[in-house]
Simulated scan of single mutants.
Amino acid sequence: MGLYHSVQAVAGASGDGPIDWDAVASAAKSSTDPGSLALTDRQEVAYADDVRAARDRVRDVADIGFDLPETVEIQNRHHWIDANVETFERVMRPLEQQADLMPGVARVANTGSMAFALSFLGRNVLGQYDPLLLADDGDDHALYFVHPNIEQVASTLAVDPDRFRRWIAFHEVAHAAEFGAAPWLSDHLESTMEDAIGALTEGSIDRASLGELDTTMTAVEGYAELVMDRAFDDEYDDLRRKLDERRGGQGPVAKLVRRLLGLGMKRRQYERGKAFFDAVADERGVAGAGAVWDGPDSLPTDTELDDPAAWLRRVDP
Rank of each mutant, 00 (worst) to 15 (best):
A208W: 12
A208K: 13
S209Y: 03
L210K: 05
L210W: 13
L210N: 03
L210R: 06
G211S: 15
E212T: 07
L213T: 09
L213Y: 09
D214K: 07
T215K: 01
T216A: 12
T216C: 04
M217G: 02
T218S: 08
V220E: 01
V220I: 06
E221A: 02
E221K: 02
G222C: 05
Y223I: 00
Y223T: 03
Y223A: 04
A224I: 00
A224C: 06
E225K: 07
E225V: 08
L226A: 10
L226T: 04
V227E: 13
V227D: 11
V227Y: 13
M228E: 15
M228F: 10
R230M: 14
A231W: 05
F232Y: 15
F232S: 11
D233C: 10
D233G: 14
E235D: 15
E235T: 15
E235G: 14
E235C: 09
E235F: 08
Y236E: 11
Y236K: 14
D237G: 13
L239Q: 05
L239I: 15
K242R: 15
L243M: 07
L243E: 08
D244N: 03
D244K: 08
E245A: 12
R246E: 05
R247Y: 05
R247C: 00
R247T: 03
G248D: 03
G249P: 00
Q250Y: 05
G251Y: 05
P252W: 09
P252V: 07
P252T: 09
V253N: 12
V253R: 13
V253Y: 14
A254S: 15
A254E: 14
K255A: 09
L256Y: 11
L256I: 09
L256N: 07
V257L: 13
R258C: 01
R258T: 03
R259M: 13
L260S: 11
L260I: 09
L260W: 10
L261Q: 01
L261V: 09
G262I: 04
G262P: 10
G264I: 01
G264T: 11
R268S: 08
R268E: 14
R268K: 05
Y270P: 07
Y270T: 03
E271Q: 12
E271F: 01
E271S: 06
R272S: 07
G273E: 04
G273R: 04
K274Q: 13
K274G: 06
K274E: 14
A275R: 14
A275C: 03
F277T: 07
F277P: 08
D278G: 04
A279R: 11
V280P: 06
V280D: 05
A281Q: 04
A281P: 10
D282G: 15
E283A: 14
E283D: 11
E283K: 12
R284P: 04
R284I: 12
G285A: 11
V286L: 09
V286Y: 08
V286D: 13
A287D: 14
A287E: 15
A287N: 12
A287I: 10
A287F: 12
A287W: 11
G290R: 08
A291N: 08
V292I: 03
V292E: 00
W293K: 07
W293F: 04
W293E: 00
D294L: 03
G295S: 04
G295D: 03
G295E: 00
P296G: 00
P296W: 00
S298F: 08
L299R: 01
P300Q: 05
P300W: 00
P300H: 02
T301H: 02
T301F: 09
T301P: 10
E304F: 00
L305M: 09
D306N: 12
D306R: 09
D307K: 05
